[in-house]
Write a protein that binds this DNA or RNA. Structure first.
Lengths: 193, 193
DNA sequence: GCGAGATCGTACCGATCGGTTCGATCCGCG
DNA sequence: CGCGGATCGAACCGATCGGTACGATCTCGC
């Protein structure tokens, strides 16, 4: 997946193209599982180009993770918004989004969690924490709309189900992970109001 | 934490001592976050000794993870056994064990999940999968004793709560993670019979 | 006390790491 | 056309990687 070659020389566009192309490679190989040289070769760019745009391999990594977190968060919010006003439907939408990612042939677990487990530099861990906070916001919002007695508690429990479903899907097979987690989530929802 | 120096020259004992000493270092620094040279310096052994006992850095890693999985699984089984016959009490024991690890000052997430996220060699991922299977066995056993309509489903949902609690404790703070997960687990338990 | 084997410390190996530099090329703008 | 900046490709840097080799030292069993 080389960066488009004949494209107009436009720094912003080049940067975005590098980001897009680097994302799946870093995800599949692991942040430290591929060197800058091989990475650039795969992207079809020179090392100098990469370093001018991102300064550091870490800079690229952070940019990739930030973009990924933004994209996932946005798609989750859209799915919830499209699910209508019923909290149960919104939960179903959430887990459907996740099941979709579990079923991707190249699924290798949550990119943010993997990154935090690999890369021990603080800024990356902070990105992961922020990512979970975003999930928590979404889930707590559903809990509030459901009239839960303790929406923050329920939100955190739902977050546990989401993350647990991802872990189980990663290491124990993706089949029905989203559905099983959803059923548990609906049970919690029903019991919390 | 150097390996005991004046100890009798006993290969088996040396091997075990290396294993014990290497475990926390590899956990804190990450499997690939520390080189063999620095690792040996920390353990107070020479590289030749390490390579004679484990053949490869990967060999050491596998041995460390295997021992850790065995130890954790055993302590979990003991806690469940000591909790008496009530499934609810057994669940409480399970999450109490996990909360104890969350509260350790050096807690950095589940060692097996971290390993799988870092080290993409197949054998390590297999160890992680086996580790989750052991958890699943324990939890499914509790679900069966509770008379759940679908104990395998409930077992998997409990596994999601356990792993989700670990993830949340890792990235969102350990406070009450075990307790919140336990309350969710008890709700599922009550609804499943 | 002697030999076998475990261990140490250190030097060394080729490979790869992240990052820099430089000359050549190519493109868009004036 | 010509200039400036983006890009390339390749060489290069010091550091570190996992792993090996070797001579010296130590401890045990005989």
């Amino acid at each position: 997946m080389p960066v488009a070659k004949g494209s107009t020389i436009d720094p912003d566009r080049t940067r975005a193209a590098i980001l897009d192309a680097a994302t799946p490679v870093l995800y599949e190989r692991g942040l430290d599982g591929i060197g800058v040289a091989e990475l650039c070769a795969r992207l079809g760019i020179s090392k100098e180009t990469l370093y001018r745009h991102f300064g550091t391999k870490d800079g690229l990594v952070r940019a990739v993770l930030e973009a990924r977190s933004d994209r996932v968060t946005r798609s989750l919010a859209e799915a919830v918004a499209a699910a209508g006003p019923e909290p149960a439907d919104q939960l179903a939408a959430v887990f459907a989004v996740f099941q979709q990612t579990y079923d991707e042939p190249r699924f290798r677990g949550c990119a943010m969690l993997n990154a935090a487990a690999q890369h021990h530099v603080e800024p990356v861990r902070a990105l992961t924490a922020r990512h979970l906070d975003r999930y928590l916001d979404t889930l707590t919002g559903i809990a509030e709309r459901a009239g839960a007695a303790d929406p923050r508690l329920l939100g955190r429990q739902l977050l546990m189900l989401v993350e647990g479903a991802t872990v189980v899907a990663t290491h124990h097979g993706p089949a029905d992970a989203g559905d099983h987690a959803l059923r548990a989530a609906l049970t919690l929802l029903a019991a919390a109001s």
